[in-house]
Amino acid sequence: MKISEQGQLLRILIGETDKHEGKPLYEWIVIKAREQGLAGATVLRGVMGFGANSRIHTTKILRLSEDLPIVIEIVDTHEKLKHFLETIDNVITEGLATLEKADIQFYRGSK
């Protein structure tokens, strides 16, 4: 797959316990991204953070949270990511999504 040098980075921030159709929301988002043929997706688990409700979520032992921050990053073209956002927008009830420019240096898979 070839993508242009001028891409976009979609970053979605949600909670680890967020669900859709009985499965973790981050899993559902990654599967949808693959179904739509996006270039790739990565899920990162945060060690600390807070969102719109200002509640701190952390891995510290005395304040162990069961709802750690999850960051999903997807890089592709602006058009494909905008279409993808339309697909997932009504499913994410709590969280944040950002789009930013990404200068793609290379995109390679195994042969």
Score class of each variant (00 low, 15 high):
residue 77 T to L: 07
residue 77 T to P: 07
residue 84 F to H: 03
residue 4 S to R: 09
residue 59 T to Q: 09
residue 70 I to C: 09
residue 64 L to G: 09
residue 95 G to Q: 05
residue 39 A to N: 11
residue 16 E to A: 05
residue 33 A to D: 07
residue 82 K to H: 06
residue 83 H to T: 12
residue 105 Q to M: 14
residue 80 K to L: 10
residue 25 L to C: 05
residue 81 L to K: 03
residue 62 L to A: 14
residue 56 I to K: 06
residue 13 L to W: 13
residue 21 E to G: 04
residue 3 I to D: 03
residue 86 E to Y: 02
residue 15 G to N: 10
residue 58 T to L: 06
residue 110 S to T: 14
residue 16 E to Q: 14
residue 109 G to K: 15
residue 48 M to F: 10
residue 99 L to V: 08
residue 47 V to L: 08
residue 67 D to E: 02
residue 74 I to N: 04
residue 9 L to E: 05
residue 101 K to W: 01
residue 6 Q to I: 12
residue 49 G to W: 05
residue 61 I to L: 14
residue 61 I to D: 09
residue 74 I to S: 03
residue 13 L to Y: 15
residue 103 D to A: 09
residue 6 Q to F: 11
residue 76 D to Y: 10
residue 8 Q to E: 13
residue 43 V to R: 08
residue 98 T to A: 10
residue 110 S to E: 12
residue 79 E to N: 00
residue 94 E to W: 11
residue 79 E to P: 00
residue 4 S to M: 07
residue 110 S to K: 14
residue 15 G to S: 09
residue 53 N to T: 06
residue 42 T to F: 08
residue 34 R to K: 15
residue 71 V to Y: 05
residue 89 D to P: 01
residue 109 G to A: 11
residue 64 L to P: 02
residue 100 E to I: 07
residue 106 F to K: 07
residue 63 R to W: 00
residue 17 T to C: 05
residue 16 E to R: 04
residue 98 T to C: 08
residue 81 L to W: 01
residue 50 F to K: 13
residue 8 Q to S: 13
residue 7 G to N: 01
residue 111 K to S: 15
residue 27 E to P: 03
residue 67 D to P: 00
residue 85 L to A: 03
residue 31 I to G: 01
residue 88 I to N: 05
residue 108 R to P: 01
residue 48 M to H: 12
residue 78 H to M: 01
residue 81 L to E: 03
residue 111 K to N: 15
residue 110 S to W: 10
residue 58 T to E: 03
residue 87 T to G: 03
residue 110 S to R: 12
residue 93 T to V: 10
residue 68 L to D: 02
residue 102 A to L: 06
residue 99 L to C: 01
